[in-house]
Structure formats: structure tokens, C-alpha cells
Design a protein around this nucleic acid. Structure first.
Lengths: 341, 341
DNA sequence: TTAAGTTACGAAAACGATTAAGTAAAGACA
DNA sequence: TGTCTTTACTTAATCGTTTTCGTAACTTAA
């Protein structure tokens, strides 16, 4: 592939002149610029990102760490949507996106590199982290490294974080159900993560504020995106002597499990029992009945994550470490009905 | 960040020795290797991918082109699953994954680069293409370039392609419905792409082989993943004087649109009418009734794409241009019932 | 003892760019 | 006329590696 040297030879000028001409610098005459550009075109010149980044110490490349359990996280609808938005924003600002991984590829260079080592090896200008186990030592090492980092849905010491307003979301949803007349609201929740903790706390707090009683049997730990578990939890709730009139699920996907369990009993939604999800996935609007859920603004989350990361990359001196909350909104749907009991 | 030079200084040896020591070459004594490795560790040395690739002319990086209409393709469940599998395979073999884009970021280096220019700029060792408009001149330029390419779900001149067996899938599905007693089968299909063409042809051919009559009114062009369109097409079919007993949809997502339209009329699935999707998305197994569909082996498609691309990268002389078909399988579900009419 | 072979390292070029500093030529000005 | 600017380049160093070709020092074999 043609290099600056080839163009220089072709035009009878120095490599420096070619470089400056192609970068449209002021101290090159327009005739020379034209001549150089023509030669570059003719020879099929392509700049070499490796050479440029070696010289400039910038790669214009952002590392992405998205790891679902045993998977890459791409098949996780919620995070895929955030990543999609992140990617579009980053690209609009001239950054490429490369995945970080700590594969133990045998023999290869990447073998046995930790996340941080990998990020350093590629000299990423910045890194975005989401959907990972934040207690993983490798993740902690990466966050503690010298590379600009933005985390999504998790707050870490001294790092900018983009959070969905889970607390407000649960509060609004619970209140919404309350206003529909429900007094027996059950809460099936994810576990382990901070997000799950916050949602649970918000549920309890809101219930308290509304003067709702929440029997322990109404609160069941489950998992995100685990349809089977949601199904079982739902059955458990329906079997109670005093079953709830409304069930809140950890996410829309889990709500499908609930629908399954409920229909199996011959109960109707929302006439006999109400349910609500969380996330606002497109499919939630399309099922019958339309799922009542909390829409998370994934578009905005991805965009803000990218904007803040780029800000930190470009202006490390003046950029602030911030915790940014992105608002959520109750999407009414039809699965929560008026309760008259 | 520490470089080989720093280690060399620290150890009192030459840069060449350090390089060879870290690469575990034969002509360095084990004492020296140990000394060098210790110093590297102490100084926090990290190899520089840019310098290595500049020197070796390999980046160990694969470009990915996945562009959905106006989006990046990440939110496209089917392709996300393929990409996920591709990524895991590539990483296991020491390759990183970077997205290709032709953003018109203002002012940045990537501004106004075509896909091929972008791929050259990053010096990708290879490229995988899926989910794009294959008539796009930029895509054609990329495929015609000098970089190893594997395409997914599309055959292009002289390039290895990984295809799902759409023809066999439609044939098997149609036959499955026929065996359930259905003689009036409607086919709502995607348009424009070769995949859509092949599926349609396969439907007609299979119908002919089975001796089925297919009125023109039973075949309705729609779009992939367009719930609204599927909904309308379904209503159109139900309004026919002689409506079908079974409707095949372009994908699982579209089938949701069908379910909606059918339920709105108070009809039951599969008692009153049967439906089937295509793809085999996880959600299809979870809805009620479980959707009859054609499962595409996304895991295998991604894996094969990666394996073949890597083979072509590593052994350009001996690698063959192949068209590889990945088998599909009818996933019975419950949405196609026995037809007694 | 000497020639040949082995071991362990170093020197230097090269990859493809950027950029600070230097310089020749032309024009401006007193 | 001589000096000062400006213009339009060139020189050369540098980024962090890899890799070829030397070359000492030591070993082995005859």
C-alpha cells in the first residue's frame, strides 16, 4: 500500500511536505497541495492508523467492555440498545469502537491479557464499561487504571457514571399501580447488583410512603431475564392464601414468564391480575395486552456516556467526574388494570 | 508508558535483546530473559499494538460491518446473535473486533471515509459483512477490495459466504404445515433481499411439489421485523372470502403482529388459525402458544464465519472461496395445529 | 594448536507517519 | 543596497517495535 514516501518520490518533494500537504497545513503552496493530492489519489494512498497513533499517541479508538454471563452482552437487548446509541455518538465524533476482552487465546498476543492490559495494548483513548460483574478483580483493575472510563448503571469511585433513574422508575411505577387502586403489590426483583438493590429499596420506601403493607411473601428474589425463575415466582405468589392483585417484574422479559404462569391458571390480565415489567423493550408494546412498564431511555444513556467519555478524553484537565441520572418514564400499556377489590 | 527502551536501559542490554527476551526467542539466555521479564513487570511495561502492527503489517483486528436501516444493526436480534458468536470465536483465536463505519464526523480523521477506506486506514486483517444493503456502492467497493472478506447471508462474487439454509427451512416448514393437514397456506414475505427471494421461490416450489394451490392473494409482500405491516397483511388475509388456515410470517417478530391481528378478531391460535414464524428467537419459545418457527443456527453461522475468515487471513494461498450453508430446523412449537377442514 | 561451530548478544535499518527547527529564495522597505 | 519578512519548502529526530546481519567469546573436534 502506498505511503507518504511513495507520494514524495512521485512528486519530487520531501515526505514532510507530503504530510503537511495532505493535512492541509498553511505553509504549503496550493499548487503543491494539489499535486500531492492528485498523486495520493493516483497511487491509492491510505493513511496508516498505526503509524499515526504511534506518533501522536492517540488512537481515536474507544474500548467497550460488555460482558453478559458467559456471553459478550450483545444479545442482551437492553445493553445492545445502549451500545448502539453509544456507537453512533462516538462515530459521529470520529471514534471507532473495539471490544475489550480477556480471552485466553492460546499462543496469540492477546493471550492472558487482563482487561486493563488489553486496553493498554490497544492504547484505547477511553473505555466504557457496562453490564459486567463489577466485583470482578479485572474490572476493578481496569476502572482503577489511567485510561478515561465511563461506567453505565454503576457508580465507581472517581469515575463518571451514567445511571438510569431506577429509584424514580420504581417509585413512579409503584405509585401508578397504587393510583389504579392496587393495595396488594408484589415485587419480584433481580439480585446482587446495585441496580437491583436500589430498585428494591425504592419499592419498600415508596410502599411506606403510600402506607402500603408489604408482606415478606410478596417480595421474591429472582434474576434478570430469567423467564423460568419469574414463572416459578409468579406461581408462588398465586398460591398464597392472600395473593397480590398486581405483580412487578425485574424486566419485561421476566414479565413474559409471569404471563405464561398466569395464563396457565386461566387468569386474565388485567381483569384478574395486573402485571408490569421494567425496561420498555419494543416488544413490550406489541404483545397483548400491551405491557405496562418503565421505559429506560437507552438512547440518551448511550449518547451521554459517549459525550462524557469524549469530553474526558479531549479535555482531561477540565472535565468533571459526574454521576448522571437519566430519567425513566412509566409506559402505561394495558397490563395494569383498575383494582376494585 | 514504559517501552522496550526503558527496559533495555534498566537491564543494561540492547533493545533488540529485550524484544527477543519478551518474545521468548531461542538466542537469549534464560538468565537474561528472567531479568528482562522482571524489569518489564517492575516498570509496568505494556506492548504497543500500533508499533507492532506498523512493523509486522498485521493488526490482529477484524472489521465488522453490520448496518441496519439507520441503525448499527446491534439491535437486530438475529444478527446480534451471529455477531456474538463471531466475536467469541474470533477472540478465542486472538483477534479483536472493531466496527467499520463511514461516518461523516466533521473534522475528524475518519470523516468522509468510505467503508473500504476505513478498513484500510485501520489495516484490518479481515472483514465480515452482514445485514447490509448489498447494492450499496460502498459495500460493493469493500467486497471488491484487497482485504479478506466473509459475507453472511449473501453470496458475492469470489467471496466466502455463510448462508442459512433458507430454502430448506421454508421447504421444511411448508411441508410441516402440509402434514398437519393444511392446504390453504399463506406466505407473508420480506422483499428486496436475495434471502427473501429465495424463501419465496422455495415456498412456491414446495407448494407445487405438494400439489398445493397458491392463490396470488395468499402471498403478500411485507418487510422484516415490521410488526405493523404484518398486522395489516394478516387482516387482509382474514378478510378474504376464502381465507387461509395457516399463515407463514417473514420472521418471529412479524408473527407477533399476526397474533395481534388474529386475537383482535377473537380468533384462537391454533384452534381457529395456525401461524408460524422464522428465525427461532428465544422469545418465540416463551410466548403462549409457543411459536412454531424455523430455527436458524446463529451460533454456528457466527462461528463458521470467523473460522473461515481467519483461515483466509492466515493462509491466503491455500484457502478456498466457499459458499457454506448452515442447516435450519423446524421448531414445532404449538402455533400450528392440525387442520380438519 | 587451529579451524569450525555454538551461544548470546548488539547495531542498525525499517515500518509510516508528525513536527520542530533550519534554510534558501523572493519580495518589502528604508 | 542591505536588511528584514515571508513563503515554501527540507532535514532530521522521533514514536515503539521487529528482524537481519554481525561479532565477540567460548566450546568442540581433529
Amino acid at each position: 500500500m502506498a505511503s507518504l514516501k511513495d507520494i514524495a518520490k512521485e512528486c519530487g518533494v520531501s515526505v514532510a511536505t507530503v504530510s503537511k500537504a495532505l493535512n492541509d497545513q498553511a505553509d504549503i503552496s496550493s499548487q503543491t497541495k494539489e499535486k500531492v493530492r492528485a498523486a495520493a489519489e493516483r497511487l491509492g494512498y491510505s493513511p496508516n492508523a498505526a503509524a499515526i497513533s504511534l506518533k501522536t499517541d492517540r488512537t481515536e479508538n474507544i474500548g467497550v467492555l460488555f460482558v453478559d454471563e458467559a456471553r459478550s452482552g450483545l444479545t442482551h437487548e437492553f445493553f445492545a440498545r445502549i451500545l448502539d446509541s453509544f456507537k453512533r455518538t462516538a462515530e459521529a465524533h470520529g471514534y471507532d469502537i473495539t471490544f475489550i476482552n480477556s480471552s485466553s487465546a492460546n499462543g496469540s498476543r492477546l493471550a492472558r491479557m487482563s482487561y486493563l492490559e488489553h486496553a493498554r495494548y490497544r492504547r484505547f483513548d477511553g473505555v466504557v464499561i457496562a453490564c459486567v460483574d463489577f466485583t470482578d478483580p479485572e474490572v476493578i483493575e481496569l476502572i482503577g487504571g489511567e485510561i478515561p472510563v465511563v461506567t453505565i448503571d454503576h457508580i465507581f469511585n472517581n469515575r463518571t457514571a451514567i445511571l438510569s433513574d431506577n429509584i424514580g422508575g420504581v417509585k413512579d411505577l409503584t405509585t401508578y399501580c397504587y393510583n389504579k387502586g392496587h393495595r396488594k403489590i408484589a415485587f419480584i426483583h433481580g439480585s446482587k447488583s446495585t441496580v437491583a438493590q436500589n430498585r428494591l429499596s425504592s419499592f419498600y420506601r415508596t410502599a411506606e410512603q403510600l402506607g402500603l403493607e408489604v408482606p415478606d411473601a410478596y417480595v421474591i428474589p429472582s434474576d434478570y431475564r430469567n423467564l423460568e425463575a419469574a414463572c416459578r415466582a409468579t406461581e408462588q405468589l398465586l398460591d398464597l392464601p392472600d395473593p397480590p392483585t398486581c405483580i412487578l417484574y425485574p424486566d419485561d422479559y421476566s414479565a413474559f414468564g409471569g404471563i405464561k404462569a398466569i395464563r396457565r391458571r386461566g387468569l386474565r390480565i388485567p381483569e384478574d391480575i395486573s402485571i408490569a415489567g421494567f425496561d420498555g423493550t419494543p416488544i413490550a408494546e406489541q404483545i397483548d395486552p400491551r405491557l405496562t412498564t418503565v421505559a429506560q431511555n437507552t438512547e440518551e444513556m448511550g449518547r451521554l456516556a459517549a459525550m462524557h467519555l469524549i469530553e474526558e478524553i479531549r479535555h482531561p484537565k477540565t472535565s468533571l467526574v459526574e454521576v448522571i441520572t437519566v430519567g425513566t418514564e412509566v409506559s402505561p400499556g394495558e397490563s395494569v388494570g383498575t383494582c376494585r377489590k
